[in-house]
């Protein structure tokens, strides 16, 4: 087996390893998406002083699987007034960007000689923002395809919201890369072995985090869905697996955003003690670092869910006001201050 592997040309080896990594990442990501829905329901129940799902297995542990089966078995209804092609495409398009973002995030240092990242690009963060900016298409097309005014309003709202907050988000990380001097995410992590960016750039972290809430359409910024006014926004007309895809896309986006925040601000797979801040020498350490990365994501996901059940929804003009008149000037000021400090040090 090993002899056969070593006989392969290097490009084939790399391809094989990449495919292996993609499969492993998906194998971890998909259960994470499923179980974050359970976490959402459990945490909301806990906040609202009730039990939450507890019938399927001990403490409702099999609930996500049963939900999945239910989604598959439900009738996949296509209303007669929708624009068919886009109606079918929109759920798929909304799922893709979240999965593509994961591809460049280093989820561990190394196992053996393999770096634990699917693609370590030297324009890393720009790629991410490019992909994130494509995320709006799924929702806009869903709103357009549904051919119904509530869905359409949801789609329009979300496109304006996502474009606005993308700017604040992009501006907030510029300061980080000025400090670190590289756009490559693995360089950013090795820079953070001294001091995590959350302590060096707290303002950038706050702006990034709130923008991430807006980008993933989560409360307090879930205006594209807002059940009370828009019935369900862009996914009003959807049922069965297509609805489930939107639902999964939301959680996949949250995980991608959390992974991004962990990499950018919380030091990625590092912990500042026990030699865990250096690339792993043994398999055990490598696995521990992957565990640290996942634990950090879980922590941020909990915050995402917690905020959802504690905060009321913003009004649309408040949302726009916050994005354009607070965050963008603040992040520009942050860039300026960082530049001045860097110049003073240098």
């Amino acid at each position: 087996m090993i002899a056969w592997f070593n006989s392969l040309p290097p490009t084939a080896q790399m391809t094989l390893f990449s495919v292996l990594k993609i499969v492993c990442v998906l194998a971890v990501l998909m259960p994470m998406i499923a179980y974050s829905t359970l976490a959402e329901r459990k945490i909301s129940a806990w906040i609202q002083d009730r039990h939450g799902p507890n019938r399927v297995g001990p403490a409702g542990i099999w609930q996500p699987i049963v939900d999945g089966v239910k989604s598959f078995l439900k009738e996949d209804f296509t209303p007669s007034h929708v624009r068919k092609a886009y109606f079918w495409l929109a759920p798929m398009i909304s799922m893709i960007p979240a999965l593509l973002t994961i591809a460049i995030i280093p989820f561990g240092s190394q196992l053996g000689s393999q770096k634990m990242v699917i693609a370590d690009l030297n324009v890393g963060i720009l790629y991410t923002f490019g992909i994130v900016s494509l995320g709006v298409y799924g929702i806009v097309l869903a709103g357009y395809a549904s051919n119904n005014k509530y869905s359409f309003l949801g789609g329009i709202r979300s496109s304006a919201q996502m474009i606005s907050y993308e700017i604040a988000m992009g501006m907030s990380v510029v300061a980080l890369f000025m400090v670190a001097g590289s756009l490559r995410l693995s360089d950013l992590i090795s820079y953070q072995t001294h001091c995590w960016f959350i302590f060096k750039q707290p303002l950038a972290f706050i702006i990034f985090m709130i923008s991430a809430f807006a980008e993933t359409n989560r409360l307090p910024f879930d205006l594209p869905e807002s059940e009370q006014e828009l019935v369900g926004g862009y996914h009003t007309e959807y049922s069965s697996m297509k609805f489930a895809l939107f639902f999964m896309a939301e959680y996949a986006n949250m995980i991608a955003a959390s992974a991004m925040m962990v990499t950018l601000f919380l030091g990625g797979w590092t912990l500042p003690f026990g030699g865990l801040d250096q690339p792993a020498q043994s398999i055990g350490m490598g696995l521990a670092q992957i565990g640290i990365f996942i634990a950090k994501i879980v922590l941020l996901m909990t915050i995402f869910i917690w905020v959802r059940w504690m905060w009321p929804r913003f009004r649309y003009d408040q949302l726009m006001d916050l994005g354009w008149r607070r965050f963008i000037p603040l992040s520009l000021a942050n860039i300026l201050i960082t530049a001045v400090v860097l110049w003073a040090i240098a």
């Binding site: 720009l126 923002f129 490019g130 992909i131 994130v132 709103g143 357009y144 496109s159 474009i163 993308e166």
Partner: peptide, 20 residues
């Protein structure tokens, strides 16, 4: 990256916005 970010991510969304 800029091509995707600016053209596909912003300009074309604006187009879609107006067409819709």
């Amino acid at each position: 990256a800029v091509q995707v970010l600016v053209y596909a991510g912003a300009v074309m969304v604006l187009f879609l916005f107006v067409i819709m």
